[in-house]
């Protein structure tokens, strides 16, 4: 019976209709339509909550049509709807009416990542004051280790989706200054209870990638003229992405 019900909701299959009490087929369909509408409208609303910037960019009508097709192809696998939409970006990339918006799948991927980050457990990170204090206690910068929040993500995007996303966090997005063709380097990190997106320079991105792989500072400094260590550290400490700033324990043990 459930298989028939699901088929009736998703494909207008009418095998279920004979089991519905009503004087005629029209009324059976009318009653079943309430469930069809509930399933699709509630999931369209859920997707709109997960991909709000995507919805703003394409408009409600386009978004709901796209979401309807996605729901048909990929119904949720979990009752936890904040997980829903993991294949939305790939779907949008293949969705013919959205082909004129090449940035849209990348933007959906960014929105999904940020939502998952929001729902991850918070890691205690250093406030700006604490980070400055720990940094001031370092005696040998050659042994300085910068430990990052393990939740952070680094993203290199071929189009300016970070700028697009950030502009839409304002009440009246100003898109005039955004060069969509610009390659972007993004840091996704948790701030308070929410996943946030920060734009980086290429040099900062390379530095953070290095620190993520090996926390020892000298090993991570990129051989790039544009890199400014002081400015980068100040920015990262303000964003509170470090869990600790210490001198290499291996060396400390060696000295003692």
């Amino acid at each position: 019976m459930q298989a028939q019900f699901k088929a009736a909701v998703f494909s207008q299959n009418d095998a279920l209709l004979k089991d519905i009490k009503a004087p005629h087929a029209h009324e059976r369909n009318q009653r079943l339509n309430v469930y069809r509408n509930n399933v699709f409208s509630s999931l369209q609303t859920a997707l709109a909550d997960i991909f709000p910037v995507c919805k703003q960019l394409v408009g409600e009508t386009f978004f709901n049509a796209m979401a309807h097709q996605y729901i048909m192809q990929c119904p949720p696998n979990s009752p936890i709807l904040s997980h829903y939409g993991d294949q939305f970006s790939a779907f949008v990339a293949q969705f013919t009416p959205a082909q004129s918006l090449p940035y849209l799948p990348l933007l959906c991927d960014l929105e999904y990542r940020l939502l998952q980050l929001t729902h991850q457990a918070e890691t205690p990170t250093l406030s700006l004051d604490m980070a400055q204090q720990q940094l001031s206690q370092i005696q040998n910068p050659e042994q300085l280790e910068l430990h990052l929040d393990p939740n952070i993500q680094l993203l290199k995007a071929p189009l300016a989706i970070g700028a697009l996303y950030l502009a839409h966090q304002q009440t009246n997005p100003n898109l005039d200054d955004i060069d969509l063709q610009q390659t972007e380097y993004l840091l996704l990190a948790k701030s308070g209870w929410y996943g946030r997106c920060y734009t980086l320079t290429e040099a900062e991105f390379v530095f953070l990638r290095g620190i993520k792989a090996d926390p020892l500072l000298p090993n991570a400094i990129p051989d790039m003229e544009a890199f400014d260590l002081g400015q980068t550290l100040a920015k990262l400490m303000t964003w509170q992405v470090f869990t600790s700033i210490i001198e290499s324990s291996a060396n400390t043990h060696g000295e003692s």
Partner: peptide
């Protein structure tokens, strides 16, 4: 139903 969640009370 099976692996799918329909988000309605059916």
């Amino acid at each position: 139903h099976q692996q799918h969640f329909l988000n309605d009370l059916l």
